[in-house]
Amino acid sequence: MKRTTIVDVGRLAGVSTKTVSRVLNGGPNVSVDVQRRVRAAAEELDYHPNVFAQALVRRRSHMIGLVYENPSPSYVVELQRGVLERLTGERYRLVVIPVRSVQENAAEVVRLLRSAALDGVVLAPPASDNPVILRQLKEAGIFCARIAPTRMIDSAPSNLVDDVTAAREIAAYVIAMGHCEIAIIRGDATHPSSEARMLGYTQAFHQAGIALKFDQIEPGLFTYESGLAAGRAILNRPNRPTAILAQNDDMAVGAMMAARELGMQIPEQLSVVGFDDSEVSRIIWPRLTTVRQPVFAMAVAATDMVIAQLEGRDPLGEVVHSHELMIRESAAPPPGLRGT
């Protein structure tokens, strides 16, 4: 079938193509009657503007990118939902750009963004903390906003959550139940949030006078598989802990599966807590005690910051989002203290 063009719309409406363009793009100086005729003609012909042609004329693509690395499906879904929520009713469209390793491919990321002709970009961790990406975006004139950065906060509009305080609070909660033998599953070392959460755990241990045992710390990658492997390593040692602090929910669920492989009951024999309050934390049983990090709200706010810049408005430079300790069934006092 022949593609309907703006010429066809103008012929049916009895106006010039320039007038059709002004109507469909919300231009000024067009009467109500002409607007009605043009829109009726476009609907009758099922005409849809060519977004690429519009981009060439306006020198704007009306596409906003979302760059992320975190492989957690729940985290990624919340990011995308947040961006799409803010874009509802806008002419901007979302382009999802997953990166296998931001640390290894930082220089390529901005080249990819430039080649995609994006108007702006939302940066999720760890891209939101990468100095190479931030510098090159500024040099390229691409507007950006950041989700959960931990460094260089004033370099671009940012949405923050206090990882240190949140991690300290959940560790203190576990300690207050009487746990002294506590293992830790760290996240990806290239993500600054892993370092911040580790600092929070360390502060809670220090305040409680509990020694941090480095042989009870296992590396992870923020994935279920890495949590399963770390959980197996921790629980197959002779000095099993009574609790595990995992730096995100996916790894916590992996640790819970490792415990079940050994026939251990949660929380009767082992307490496990996570971080994020992702969907998996609410559907696993027992449900996971964790920290609620408002990923959806941060993605909405970051997208709004990008749009504000594109429209010539000053975005908020920094928004601090609150976290919340979500007490569920995966953590309880250690066996020796239960019932006291």
Score class of each variant (00 low, 15 high):
Asp304Arg: 14
Phe296Ser: 02
Ile284Gly: 01
Leu245Thr: 01
His321Val: 05
Val320Lys: 08
Gln269Leu: 03
Ile327Phe: 09
Leu235Lys: 05
Pro294Leu: 11
Arg292Pro: 01
Gln309Arg: 04
Met251Glu: 07
Met257Ala: 13
Pro294Met: 13
Ile327Lys: 13
Arg237Thr: 08
Ala258Gln: 10
Met305Asn: 08
Asp314Asn: 08
Ala258Lys: 10
Met251Asn: 03
Gln269Phe: 05
Met256Asn: 05
Val320His: 10
Ile327Ala: 08
Ala255Ile: 11
Arg292Glu: 10
Arg328Lys: 14
Met298Leu: 11
Val280Trp: 03
Val320Arg: 10
Glu324Ala: 15
Asp249Gly: 03
Asn236Arg: 15
Val319Phe: 09
Val253Pro: 03
Arg287Val: 04
Thr289Glu: 01
Glu311Pro: 01
Thr289Asp: 01
Arg237Glu: 08
Ile284Tyr: 10
Gly263Thr: 03
Ala233Lys: 13
Met264His: 04
Gln309Leu: 01
Thr290Gly: 00
Met264Phe: 08
Leu235Met: 09
Asp314Thr: 15
Arg313Thr: 04
Ile283Thr: 12
Gln309Pro: 00
Phe296Arg: 13
Pro294Cys: 12
Ala243Arg: 05
Ala258Trp: 12
Val300Ile: 15
Ala308Lys: 14
Gln293Ser: 05
Phe275Pro: 08
Ala299Cys: 14
Val306Arg: 07
Arg292Trp: 06
Gln247Arg: 03
Glu318Met: 15
Ile284Trp: 12
Ala230Lys: 10
Arg260Glu: 14
Pro286Ile: 00
Glu268Ala: 14
Glu279Pro: 03
Ser278His: 13
Arg237Ile: 03
Met256His: 06
Gly254His: 13
Thr289Tyr: 02
Asn239Gly: 10
Met305Glu: 05
Met326Ser: 06
Val300Arg: 13
Pro286Lys: 00
Glu279Ile: 14
Gly231Met: 10
Ala297Thr: 05
Leu245Ala: 01
Ser271Leu: 00
Arg287Ile: 02
Gln265Phe: 06
His323Tyr: 14
Val306Glu: 01
Val306Phe: 06
Thr289Asn: 01
Pro267Phe: 01
Gly274Cys: 08
Met326Glu: 12
Val253Asn: 06
Thr242Lys: 02
Glu261Gln: 12
Ala302Trp: 09
Gly312Met: 02
Asn248Cys: 12
Ala230Gln: 10
Glu324Ile: 08
His321Asn: 08
Val273Ser: 14
Arg328Gln: 13
Gln269Met: 04
Pro315Arg: 05
Ala233Pro: 04
Ala301Glu: 15
Met256Lys: 07
Leu325Glu: 11
